[in-house]
């Protein structure tokens, strides 16, 4: 299944793109985090949240949505 990852905020600069498509089968959010940290070691140091179907779920949730959003906290005001 093709899944589109959309990055927000500083993550766009860290991974060098705002979107990418991954071909995955039956993986969990936790497994996606491991893939992200292997692909982009600089992400290991950052706080981030992962949402699918516009909902932030648990790490053990299986990815069923074709659209995944990955965002950090912002601090500016």
């Amino acid at each position: 299944m093709d899944v589109t990852l959309t990055y927000y905020g500083k993550l766009v600069e860290v991974v060098g793109k705002s979107k990418e498509v991954l071909d995955v089968e039956a993986i969990t959010i936790q497994e996606l985090v491991i893939w992200l940290e292997n692909e982009y070691p600089d992400l290991k140091k950052l706080s981030l949240k992962i949402a699918q179907n516009n909902t932030i779920g648990e790490l053990e949730d299986e990815i069923t949505s074709k659209n995944i959003d990955i965002f950090p906290p912002f601090s500016g005001g």
Partner: peptide, 18 residues
């Protein structure tokens, strides 16, 4: 409930830095 603990110093730039 969204972000349980604060990010480490320097992890997220503020307006002055970014």
């Amino acid at each position: 409930c969204l972000f349980p603990t604060p990010p480490k110093a320097g992890e997220v730039p503020n307006c002055e830095e970014a």
